[in-house]
Amino acid sequence: MTQNRFLRLVAGRAVMTVITALFIAIVVFFAIRAIPGDPALTILGTESSPEEREQLRAVMGLDQPIVTQFSLWLGQLIGGDLGYSYSQGRPVTDIIGPALVNTMMLGGLASVMAIALALIMGNLATTRWRAVRRTIDGAESFFLSAPQYTIALVLLIVFAVLLPAFPAGGVATRGDGSVGDILSHLFLPALALALAPGAQMARSLKTSIATLQATDLLPTLQARGLAPWRLAIHAHHNALPPMITVLGIQVGTMLGGALFVEQIFSIPGLGALIVQSVSLRDYTLVQAVALLIAMVFVVVLLLADVVNALLDPRIRKGRA
Score class of each variant (00 low, 15 high):
Y84D: 09
Y84L: 05
Y86E: 10
Y86L: 04
Y86P: 00
S87D: 10
Q88I: 13
G89S: 05
G89D: 03
R90Q: 06
R90P: 01
P91W: 06
P91M: 14
V92N: 03
T93W: 11
D94K: 09
I95Y: 03
I95R: 04
I95E: 05
I96Q: 02
G97S: 09
G97Q: 14
G97T: 15
P98M: 01
A99F: 03
L100R: 04
L100T: 00
N102E: 12
T103L: 08
M104D: 03
M105I: 14
M105P: 08
L106N: 01
G107E: 12
G108W: 07
L109E: 08
L109Q: 08
A110W: 05
A110G: 01
A110R: 03
S111G: 13
S111H: 04
S111Q: 10
S111L: 13
S111A: 15
V112T: 11
I115F: 01
I115H: 05
A116S: 10
L117H: 03
L117F: 11
L117S: 12
A118Y: 04
A118D: 10
L119D: 04
I120C: 09
I120M: 07
M121N: 07
M121G: 02
M121V: 14
G122R: 01
N123K: 07
N123V: 15
L124R: 00
L124P: 00
L124G: 00
A125Q: 06
A125H: 13
A125V: 11
T126G: 00
T127E: 14
R128K: 07
W129S: 15
W129G: 05
W129M: 12
W129F: 15
R130S: 11
A131N: 11
A131T: 15
A131V: 15
A131P: 12
V132R: 11
V132S: 06
R133Y: 11
T135C: 09
T135R: 08
I136G: 01
I136T: 00
I136H: 01
I136Y: 02
D137C: 10
D137M: 08
G138W: 10
A139G: 10
A139E: 10
E140N: 13
S141L: 14
S141K: 07
S141T: 10
F142N: 00
F142A: 14
F143W: 09
L144W: 08
S145W: 01
A146D: 07
A146F: 13
P147C: 00
Y149T: 13
I151G: 00
I151V: 14
A152I: 05
L153Y: 01
L153F: 07
V154N: 00
L155D: 01
L156N: 09
L156M: 12
L156S: 15
L156Q: 14
I157H: 02
V158N: 09
F159T: 06
F159H: 07
A160G: 08
A160M: 06
L162P: 06
L163A: 13
P164G: 10
A165L: 15
A165S: 07
A165C: 07
F166W: 07
F166Y: 06
F166A: 04
F166Q: 04
P167W: 04
